[in-house]
Each structure stands twice: as C-alpha cells, then as structure tokens.
Amino acid sequence: MNNQAGGAHAHVLDTARDPSLDPSFSLYLDAARGLAALAVVVAHFGYFRILDDAQIARLPDFGREAVIAFFVLSGFVIAYSVRHKHRSLADYAAARAARLYSVVLPVLLLAFALATLVRHATGLPVSDAYELGKPWLYIPFHLAFQGDTWGFAERPPWLLPYWSLDYEAWYYVLFGCWHFLAGRRRWLAAGAVLLLVGPRLWLLLPVWLSGVALYRWQQGHVLGRTVARAGWLATVVLVALWGWCDPEPWLRGVAQQWWPFAGIRMGSADRVLADYPVALLVWVNFACARHAGFGIVLARLARPIRFLAAHTFTLYLSHALVIGVWQTLLPIERGSAHEIVAIAVAIALTALALNPLTEVLRKRLLRGFEGMLARAPALRTP
C-alpha cells in the first residue's frame, strides 16, 4: 500500500519481500483504502448538511464502516511492517511518529490558524472556538492524541475525523510495547498504556488487532479461487444490506445502556456493537480478496488506484477543514449541484497541495526521530 502517511492511510507493501502479498492484493488494499476515504468524505457531505434531505436519503452512509476498514487495514499494515521493515523499537517508533506527524502537524496548525483568523476577522462563530483561546494548551494536547482518553471528548477546530487518530496512535504505542518488549517490561508497559488511555480505547482495540490477526492468518492459509470469490461477493452483499437496514442506531442505544462507566461519555466508541460485525465482514472480505484473482482488473487501474491511495491521509484529515471554513464563510444552498462540485473540488485541491509538503516533512521528521532515538541504544536492540 502507498507510502504517504501513517497506519491504514499509508505504506506500499513490498511484495518482493513477502511473496504471500502479491501485487494484486497490494493494489486491492490500496483501492479499499482509497474508497474508504471517499466514503468518509461523502458521509460528511451528509453530516454537515451540504446534501439535502432527499440526497441524504438516497445515499447510504458508510462513513463509520469506512473508518472500521481503516482500523483493520492499520493493524494489518503494522503487522507487516514489524516483520519486514522495523526490527527494533527505535526504528518502529521513528517510522510511526514520522508518518503521523507529517500530516497531523501541518493540518492541525492550519486548522488553528485559519479558525483564529476567521474568528477575529469576521466575528463569525467557529466550532470548538474555546480551544482557540489556549492554543499553547490544546495544540500539544491534540499532538499527544489525548482527545478520547478517559473523560475527554475533544476535537480540534474543524477536524472532526481527528478522533480516529486518537485511537490509532495509541494502538501503535501499545503494539510496539507488546511486540518489542519481553517479560515483565512487556506487561508493565502494555498495562501502563491501557491504563493511560481509558476504557473507550479498549473497546475498539479488538477491531485494530483483527488486522494483525489477518496478516498472521493469511501467512499460512490459502483459499480456493471459487471459495474466495464467493466469500468476497457475500461480504459485499452483506455490507450493502447492513447499510440498507442500518441497525446501528439500535445497537448504539444498547451499548450506551450497557456502558458501566457512568462518569465517562462513550463518545466515539458508542457504535462499538455495530463496529464488531462490520470489522468481521471487512476481515473476511480482505481474506477472500487475497485469493480471488482480481489481478487483471486491478492492474488496468493501477495508476489511479496508487494515486488515490497516496492522498488518502491528507484527504481524510483535511476535508472537514475545507468544509468547516466554507460553511463558516459562505452560505450553502443545500443540495445545490454546483456547490457540491465546488466544495468537492476545493477538497481535492487541498489534499493535492498538502501532499508534497507532508512527504518532505515525513522524511525530515524521520531523520530527526531516528537521530533522537539513536541516543537510546536499548531501543535499537531487535
């Protein structure tokens, strides 16, 4: 998968190093990630009321399902990376931090700068404007991915998708502790991380770990092409039925009733009972796609798939910023075709403009983190 940013939003899988991951499967995962990013954007066109009610009714909302697919992909990619790329905790930590912050840092700073400028220049209300009064507190807070730990439910201005990074970043930390440490140190470090992040992040951890399990499972299992295609088609049909029936609101109510921590809001984890079956469908879909023989079709679309995959992280994180600025400064005629197209073009141009910057920043951050961690020889022990 592509090499632009962190977790499920990045990495080209080196099929030469891992024969079980052939080029067609790598392309499939890139396509899945690109489509998931587009699904989130479309879902937010409904969430932010850019589409009218009739359009929202016609378009199934797969935004949350797309994020769950990202989580499964993230676990898969991280399991691959520690097998073939990052053989020490220092290498792993430097790579993960550089991937995340290469996109998070410029987009987060841009969000705070634009929100502050708009608020002071126009006097218009800005979402989460209270954070603008204390950027010295909230910018480091968000860079530490604390927005969903324990009782917090904080988002940066105009960056609604940031919540998933608050989960994913800590799953990187937890996995790194467990994979690279041993004995008592492993248990103490993993326990400390779990205690630090709180119960909401515990709930979606099995979803992320299912991606790790998928990578390890497919190392030793092969499906016949007929079975793989039938399984793949079944998961597509079941996902479509899931979107049509939409059991999520009922399951969310059940989850909130069962939530044992009265003083802590469920926040972004309140859909957990729906997330588990969706994660299972994604898991089976990926497992079947590996052996379904989609290579010829995917090879013909390789260039657009790789191009879209290269921009998924910037697209995922920055699109809500574009929507937030647009909604604040300009009145939106809901459902207007020309406004939908104009906002979509603005989102695409923003992602395209940010992408070269984030790649340069990633390389510089990687060198910086590697140099810093080189001073800790214990972290460089395989």
Rank of each mutant, 00 (worst) to 15 (best):
N2V: 07
W158E: 14
Q257P: 02
L165Q: 06
A36Q: 02
E168Y: 05
L89S: 04
A351H: 12
V103Q: 02
A309Y: 00
W158L: 10
R186S: 09
G147H: 03
D128F: 07
L251R: 00
T350L: 08
P60G: 12
P140D: 10
N285C: 11
L188N: 11
A31K: 01
L110D: 02
R229G: 11
L159A: 07
R229L: 14
G295S: 06
A213Q: 11
E65M: 13
G211I: 05
R119Q: 15
Y101S: 00
Y172D: 10
V72K: 10
G263R: 11
A43D: 07
P304A: 05
R17T: 12
L201G: 15
P23L: 09
V345S: 08
L165G: 07
M1C: 05
V173Y: 04
V284P: 03
A93V: 15
L379M: 01
F76W: 01
G243M: 03
V272H: 14
L352T: 05
G335N: 03
A95S: 14
V254L: 13
L174A: 10
V227W: 11
A310R: 02
Y28S: 10
Y167G: 03
H120N: 15
W158G: 11
L273T: 04
R99P: 01
L203P: 09
L204Q: 06
H44Q: 04
F71V: 04
Q327P: 00
N3K: 05
P249R: 08
L301G: 04
Y276L: 15
G371V: 07
A57V: 10
A144H: 06
G324L: 07
G46L: 04
M1S: 05
V12D: 01
T358H: 03
W202G: 12
A182N: 08
A289F: 09
L204N: 09
L38Q: 10
F313P: 02
P356E: 13
L137D: 06
A90E: 14
A169N: 07
W178C: 11
A111N: 10
L251T: 03
A287E: 06
C288K: 03
Y80E: 11
A309T: 07
T149E: 10
W283G: 11
L13S: 04
L27C: 14
I68Y: 01
P199Q: 08
A337I: 07
V41K: 04
A79N: 06
A299L: 00
V207A: 08
A43G: 06
Q218C: 13
L109H: 03
V278Y: 14
F112Y: 13
G267T: 09
A5G: 15
Y316C: 01
S268W: 11
W326I: 04
H9S: 14
H9F: 14
F141K: 12
E65H: 08
F294I: 11
M372N: 02
V284F: 03
L109V: 09
P377F: 08
L38I: 13
R380V: 04
